[in-house]
């Protein structure tokens, strides 16, 4: 499903989730090692680690599934697909 150019909108979304997830996850890990002096409420839940990790995984799945390379392979396997 392209609904536009050769790059799918879902590919852009995958890239966005991947980059944001990686940044947030990395920051969360850093804060576990170096806890900040001023902490947000419920800091001990380390939301940035699990939320960032979740976004990262979703980003990888979307990014790979809708990557131009993957799309080309699918189109080659099924030339009649749109």
């Amino acid at each position: 499903m392209k609904s536009g150019g050769s790059l799918s909108i879902w590919f852009f979304i995958g890239i966005s989730l991947l980059v944001n997830g990686a940044l947030i996850f990395a920051r969360g890990i850093y804060e576990i090692i170096h806890p900040p002096q001023q902490q947000v409420v419920l800091f001990y839940l380390h939301a940035n680690v699990w939320w960032g990790g979740l976004l990262l995984i979703l980003g990888v799945v979307y990014g790979l599934h809708y990557s131009p390379l993957h799309q080309r392979k699918r189109n080659a396997a099924n030339p009649n697909a749109s």
């Binding site: 920051r27 804060e31 900040p36």
Partner: peptide, 15 residues
């Protein structure tokens, strides 16, 4: 947002 979101999550919330 400011109550719960530290660095990273705050940037995502603002975004």
């Amino acid at each position: 947002l400011a109550r719960y979101c530290g660095p990273g999550l705050l940037g995502l919330g603002i975004t």
